[in-house]
Every structure is written in structure tokens, then in C-alpha cells.
């Protein structure tokens, strides 16, 4: 079983709008797959199906060979699908450290009563989460802002906090929705290296939605192109870049 994720003929409707129209593709395990397309193509909608926020009107989604369509949204993290959000979705009043610790929520099972009494295993669990969170903060160079609430931080820093928070759950599949939004050219290049490093260090699979073509083309092994909810092309970056329909629909309008 080489595909970690199989998207099978997924369609999503919002009233009259068809946001996804029979989209199918596989995500190979351990790879970085770029998902691109013009604004409104349905990329975020697909992510929201993968985290079970939206329900497809037809089709199926298999993760590790099993359908996820009857799984509760809150179970997705424990199952191994982690994500970041296109428009930041941090816990604004919590500190950076606490945001990352919330990311590790699904890695343990402590209940209200044992927390209220702070029983020994809760203490042990807290220490474990503390160490894990600090390791991630160091990994992503966030230790200097660990004590600050996320609300006032620069956009790029907040994006990195989201990444740390997503990694805290030890996902097998990481969904990144426009992680380079708002960054300058050099920062984008740095970010590309970081994603590769994360993938190699932590042996996970990355599904990357991004408008920075240079980033997608540089780090993805495979690219899937959506337009108006349909898949119009799929292949290596070179193949996709040469595809006339893609050039017409997307790259053509951009350059």
C-alpha cells in the first residue's frame, strides 16, 4: 500500500456552487504533493473534506486504506491527519507554548477529574507535553516568543506557530494551506527547505496548497492541478508546467 491518501471521485456542492466536481488522486506515502489552482478552484474545500469539516456529496476518501467519511472531525488528528489553515486559526489569547501544547492534545487521554486533582499521571503527561512542545519550538526557532500570546505576533511567526502546533500531534499526513502567504522571496525559499527537512526528519507526507509556484515546483514530487472544482492535470512539476490546459487556466493568467 504505497498511497497514504486516496481521494476518489469527490464532489462538494454549496447550494448552486459546485466547489469540487469528481476529483480523484492518490498521495504517495512519504512524498510532497503540491495541490495548485487559481482562486476558488476548490483546494481549501478539499482540505476541509480531509479534516471532516465539509461532507462530500459523493465519492470517498481513504486514509491508510480506510474510509474516513464516518469518522468524527475531532478524531482526524489522532488518526494522523494534521493541518494548518489558510487564514490563521491560532488560539489568540493562549501563549505560543500553549498553542503548541494544544496541538499535542490528541497524544494523551486525561480526563477532567484527574486533571482537577492533578494526579501523578497528569503531572507526568504535562511534563512530556512540555518537553515535546519545547523541542518543537526549538526546531522552528520559536523559543523567543514562547511566552507571548499569539494575537500580536507578526504574520510569518504566526504561520510558524501553526506549523509547530500541527507537528505536535505527530501527523502522518500534513496538510499545509498556503503556508507561504505573505512571505517575501527569500523567506519562501527558506520555507521550502524547511518543509523538505520536516518531511525527512519526521517521515511524514505533505500535501501542499500554495500560490507561490516557485515553491511548489521546487519541492513537490507530484503536482495536482484543480480549476473550477475539476482536476485538469496531474504529474511531475515539469509535466504540469508543460501542460497546455494548465498554462491556459492557471500559469497563463498568472504570468
Amino acid at each position: 500500500m504505497s498511497s497514504i491518501l486516496e481521494v476518489r471521485d469527490v464532489s462538494v456542492n454549496f447550494g448552486g456552487i459546485v466547489a469540487l466536481d469528481g476529483v480523484s488522486f492518490d498521495v504517495p506515502r512519504g512524498g510532497i504533493l503540491g495541490l495548485i489552482g487559481p482562486n476558488g478552484a476548490g483546494k481549501t474545500t478539499l482540505f476541509n473534506c480531509l479534516s471532516r469539516l465539509y461532507v462530500p456529496s459523493s465519492g470517498d476518501i481513504l486514509f491508510d486504506g480506510k474510509s474516513i467519511l464516518s469518522t468524527s472531525p475531532y478524531r482526524m488528528a489522532r488518526l494522523g491527519i494534521g493541518r494548518t489553515f489558510q487564514n490563521l486559526a491560532l488560539f489568540s489569547r493562549l501563549t505560543v507554548l500553549d498553542n503548541v501544547k494544544v496541538g499535542a492534545h490528541c497524544s494523551s487521554h486525561t480526563d477532567f477529574l484527574s486533571n482537577a486533582l492533578r494526579l501523578p499521571w497528569v503531572k507526568r503527561d504535562e511534563r512530556r507535553m512540555e518537553d515535546k512542545a519545547w523541542a518543537l519550538l526549538e526546531y522552528l526557532e520559536l523559543t523567543d516568543v514562547a511566552h507571548l500570546p499569539t494575537a500580536g505576533l507578526p504574520f510569518g511567526t504566526q504561520k510558524r506557530v501553526e506549523l509547530a502546533r500541527a507537528l505536535a500531534a505527530d501527523p502522518k499526513l500534513l496538510l499545509l494551506d498556503e503556508p507561504a502567504g505573505g512571505l517575501n522571496h527569500e523567506e519562501v525559499e527558506e520555507l521550502g527547505k524547511l518543509f523538505r527537512k520536516i518531511r525527512d526528519d519526521r517521515q511524514l507526507t505533505v500535501l501542499l496548497v500554495e500560490h507561490h509556484m516557485s515553491l511548489v515546483m521546487a519541492i513537490s514530487e507530484q503536482v495536482v492541478v484543480l480549476n473550477f472544482g475539476r482536476k485538469i492535470a496531474e504529474g511531475t512539476p515539469a509535466q504540469v508546467r508543460a501542460d497546455p490546459e494548465v498554462v491556459h487556466a492557471y500559469l497563463g493568467t498568472k504570468h
Binding site: 488528528a77 488560539f91 501544547k101 490528541c106 486525561t110 480526563d111 507535553m129
Partner: peptide
């Protein structure tokens, strides 16, 4: 105790952003 540990963080996370809280497995 309740508010400074894992459960408390979950409560505050729900307050600040329920969708993201759910995506984090709460």
C-alpha cells in the same frame, strides 16, 4: 489544576477558535 493542564488548555482553545480546537483533536 483543571485550568492549567491539558483540559484547561482545551477549554480555552475552544473559546478562542472552536474549529481549530476540533482539528487539534479536541
Amino acid at each position: 489544576n483543571l485550568l492549567r493542564g491539558r483540559t484547561g488548555r482545551a477549554l480555552k482553545a475552544i473559546r478562542d477558535n472552536p474549529i481549530a480546537a476540533q482539528a487539534m483533536g479536541i
